[in-house]
Nucleic acid binder design. Structure first.
Length: 375
RNA sequence: GGACGGGUGGGUGAGUGGUUAAAGCCAACAGACUGUAAAUCUGUCCCUCCUUGCGAGGUACGAAGGUUCGAAUCCUUCCCCGUCCA
């Protein structure tokens, strides 16, 4: 993996670049749709390519490890072939499941003992094993096993957790280096900055991880219930301490109007389930604000979901039709809404990229902030 | 004409003397969702009032009357609906 910076905003820390992978070039800043179980829910890979056009998507180590099993995926030719996704894939390590499956896991120095949410069976994840699983899947960008801490957490808890995350990162990177020597393909590994909502811990963690000289870095442990300003603040602390010449990835964010804020901190990559999950739950993101499709005001609304969107859904179907499909519980609703919401996110990223390259990103950011203040 | 069965809040459908303004489901109307245990979850859902409270009052289980301290629940009559027999 190689990262190339094309333009940097003279005012903010925003930059535009290209990440070169074995599965294509990723223009940054980029938003990565989430496809946890080897599928972006609701859409076919072809629909994703044609209508959303993301150069990279996310998948998940924990889920694919449990089902169908990473060795099964490997024997079927790897994740790209298995799910018929020709472009890049980033796999999360299962660190987020340390947080979300809180009641089903036990953390030790060695790693995390999970009880499967599917059948209750016990499984151990270590920094080394999650690298192996991700390499078996054939991930282009692997993530180090981390502990995604809950919010709120005491400083002591945050420190303990962060120290462990650093040790795990060190083990993960070492193991990855060893494995890379015997593998011809190109698989990056990103450590993840933790530290709860404590700025000094975030800084300490970033510093320690930089010493590992990894191909790229992530900032995790955000959007776990803290106020939005805190997520921004923590990003603002950690991002500048990460190497300029390597991609920075903020995990699990955010709402559309927050994306520019992260980019302004020098973030290159983001992912979030919001566009896909909210689509399925009836919450559509548009250039003019949100559309809760079940609202009766859309019952006879012949307008597209977003008049400024060129996606398949918006260029053909009315809000009234989408509402009908949603209320009727039709499968097609999920497909059409997911196509639109993901397209909206990717369009926002493309706009920002163009703004950075053309030198107008500060204006773009100002406009976004003005709109937010008005709503 | 006769014999059974049945009429419950927008719909369905529990409830067969008091803890029932009346379960559940559906519909309707809102809200939540941030490295996906999510095509999920939550709230409201008779009317009025206020000190917004496991608050007060009113109306309500086809209609009217009755029994009872107390009735959606028991009795009487009537009106509807369904099935069957003439």
């Amino acid at each position: 993996m190689r990262f190339e910076i094309q333009a940097e905003c003279p005012v903010t820390r925003a930059r535009a670049g290209l990440i070169h992978t074995d599965h294509g070039v990723i223009p940054t800043p980029i938003f990565m749709p989430v496809g946890t179980q080897a599928t972006v829910k609701g859409v076919t890979p072809q629909q994703l390519l044609d209508e959303v056009d993301p150069p990279i998507i996310l998948s998940n180590t924990y889920h694919l490890f449990l089902r169908p099993g990473h060795e099964t995926v490997r024997s079927l030719g790897g994740l790209h072939k298995f799910m018929q996704w020709p472009r890049a894939i980033l796999t999360d390590s299962g660190g987020f499941q340390v947080f979300s499956l809180n009641s089903l896991r036990k953390i030790s120095e060695d790693g995390v003992l999970f009880q499967s949410h599917l059948d209750g069976s016990p499984h151990m994840f270590t920094p080394e094993s999650t690298v192996d699983v991700q390499l078996a899947l054939g991930s282009d960008i692997c993530m180090v096993l981390d502990e995604c801490l809950e919010y709120p957490a005491s400083r002591t808890a945050a420190k303990t957790s962060m120290d462990r995350t650093i040790r795990w990162a060190s083990r993960g990177v070492r193991h990855w280096r060893e494995r890379m020597q015997s593998i011809g393909a190109n698989h990056a590994l990103f450590p993840i900055v933790q530290g709860g909502m404590y700025a000094d811990l975030r800084a300490e963690c970033a510093g320690a991880l930089v010493d590992l000289d990894a191909p790229g870095y992530a900032i995790g442990g955000l959007s776990v219930g803290e106020p939005r300003e805190l997520s921004q603040e923590m990003t603002g602390v950690a991002a500048p301490l990460l190497p300029r010449e390597k991609p920075r990835y903020v995990m699990g964010v955010g709402m559309p109007d927050e994306l520019p804020e992260y980019v302004s901190h020098g973030v290159d990559m983001m992912d979030c389930v919001l566009p896909s999950r909210n689509a399925r739950n009836g919450y559509l993101f548009t250039s003019e604000g949100r559309v809760i499709i079940k609202h009766s005001e859309y019952k006879e609304d012949s307008r597209p979901v977003d008049p400024n969107c060129g996606c398949y859904t918006c260029s053909r179907f009315s809000r009234a039709y989408l509402r009908h499909l949603f209320l009727a519980g039709e499968i097609l609703y999920s497909t059409l809404s997911t196509i639109h919401n993901l397209r909206r996110y990717l369009d926002i990223m493309r706009q920002m990229r163009e703004a950075i390259i053309s030198g107008t990103f500060p204006d773009y950011l100002t406009a976004i902030r003005r709109d937010r203040a008005h709503t």
